[in-house]
Design a protein around this nucleic acid. Structure first.
Lengths: 131, 131
DNA sequence: AACGTATTGAGAACAATTCTCACCGAATCG
DNA sequence: CGATTCGGTGAGAATTGTTCTCAATACGTT
């Protein structure tokens, strides 16, 4: 399944999408990103948002997260942070301190560029609810 | 979104599903689980598999993983392990050593029961391909 | 400026997951 | 032990996040 990376071209759409990601406080879904990005003068299609995100991920510029519901969320690698996820209610919140401060650069032949950590458990509310 | 946990009842279907999960070497999808489970004497519906998995997750018996494609995979918490995920080709593999051996039991008011770590980067093949 | 080719947009297509609803059966209570 | 209650089950429909299609556009190079 190895693929040669095609040369990526610079487009104003990707710039806008990157700016929107940078403006976001936490990881956001492609749909949410699309909603924000379409407010601009020139509309950007949802498919383009998905494709841009795919490219960003391949370039290790962005990282996918899968907390909570079935939607994938994306964030800039530069603004990396992990999450607490409640197993009972599904709520999640960003985690300030990174529990994995220094990952090794390599693991065997694998070249490491980043990570995504979800800490599972129960939030305060669900604990008192009898979880 | 807090929900009271209903008392869960013991059913043979859930036992079968749990056994199938225990027999699996790594995390597997609900569909794959269903395929294995339907081979038995009495068939089990796909919806039941999804519902059982949801219950197991709420009880911290199983943990969801989202490596690679768009499918969610599940594994027993007891057999926990993390993954390496290639950003370019999407391939992934289980990671033997856990990079986060001891998570704190609590983080603020949050009660920690486990975690899921995805280490991102590029596999050997994609590195040589010019990634 | 012209060319080759990656990128875009809109909607259709696809697929993983959830929902619906009638029936079943595990746990509880008298 | 038998009745009752309410969570669980099955099959398929429905939902919805994501990818695909294809003609048109526009980077970047020559």
């Amino acid at each position: 399944m190895t693929q040669q990376l095609p040369r990526t071209r610079k487009t104003w759409q990707r710039d806008v999408i990157l700016q929107a990601m940078d403006a976001a406080k936490c990881h956001i879904t492609a749909e949410e990103l699309h909603r924000r990005v379409r407010r601009g003068v020139r509309p950007i299609g949802l498919a383009t948002v998905y494709r841009a995100l795919e490219t960003f991920v391949r370039e290790a510029l962005a990282e996918p997260v899968h907390v909570g519901d079935g939607k994938v969320r994306y964030g800039l690698t530069a603004k990396h942070h992990d999450h607490l996820v409640c197993l009972n209610c599904g709520e999640w919140e960003p985690l300030n301190e990174c529990l994995l401060p220094r990952t090794p650069r390599r693991l065997g032949t694998f070249k490491v560029t980043g990570h995504q950590l979800d800490v599972y458990g129960y939030c305060a509310q669900c604990q008192t609810a009898g979880a």
